[in-house]
Amino acid sequence: MRIALLHSRIRVEERLLLDELASLGIDHELIDVRELVFDIHDASRWTSLDAVIDRCIGQTQALAAVRVFERFGVRSVNPASVIEACGDKLTTSLLMARHEIPTPRTCIALDEASALAAVERIGYPAVLKPTTGSWGRLLARVNDRDAAEAVIEHKSTLGSVQHSVFYVQEYVPKPDRDLRVFVVGEEAICGIVRHSAHWITNTARGGVASVLEITPEIRDLCARAARAVAGSGGALLAIDLLEAPGRGLLVSEINHTMEFRNSIAPTGVNIPRRMIEWVVATSPASAARGPAPSTGAPSAPSTLTPVPASPRSRASLIEELKLGHWAAFDAHSRTEVA
């Protein structure tokens, strides 16, 4: 068994994953995505790999590299389809709506006038988010029409092309906290409560973490959300939940390259070890070769390993999420915004 850790920066999380690979005696290598040169006609450099664990911080680079590895027959965790499903909030929301998983009400619009109509449809306060990005960056809560017009104009004028997709969501009046659940495969292995007096509760923005009890409701909801984005193959995910008064839990976001350094101590769960163990246990090479070698010695080069049957191909994902010709789109009702 040989595993590569694909990275662009080595943060605490990557160090912890490397430590677990070493302690489990798994042959591994580091691949800096910035140094990669792929000859797409020659996969021989990579065929000794049984799996690549994507830990790139940049989604565009990650997706490009993972697509190549998968085409070369190297399993990627997470796979490209999961990166696509989770790395774009629009796709995540569409999948949640499609699978009837409770999620904040969301509208999409593609120009300024439609964006304002989408905000008015959602009602105030509303939240505008970029469709990519993390850590609470560039979230805007708009409490009235004046604020909505200002934010929409700023996004149109100052934002990148990506900001021409207006992702508008209801503001959920949650308590001063949200929940993050770590999912390995489909199993919710642990979770944290992120507290903050600010409406953005990300720990990256100063939220403080404490342990979350994994209730049957949380376990079931997270398993359903994981299946929605990863099919039956499972994935390594961090699922953010909101407690909506009178409505129960809502799936807010799903992260495919989760950060966990601040969650190990409060939960008491060795999250990186559980991640590595799952990758090994679900690898086709494990079934073929038995337990991972304990010496850390390089394993024999494998033949081209078939990618495990993908529960949802990219083509079916695209087909599943076909939008049609809507200027402003309500992800939940498939009706055009008036």
């Binding site: 920066r9 080595i10 911080i57 940049g58 989604q59 565009t60 790395g87 970029p130 990519t132 990005g133 993390s134 850590w135 960056r137 990148s160 990506q162 961090a238 992260n255 495919h256 390259t257 989760m258 950060e259």
Partner: peptide
């Protein structure tokens, strides 16, 4: 800071956050 060399040990200012960076 990003470690750009381990022998000799060198560091450079790490890149600022970019648009598609995240979890």
């Amino acid at each position: 800071l990003e470690v750009t060399s381990v022998s000799p040990l060198r560091v450079e200012l790490a890149p600022e956050v970019e648009e598609d960076w995240g979890e």
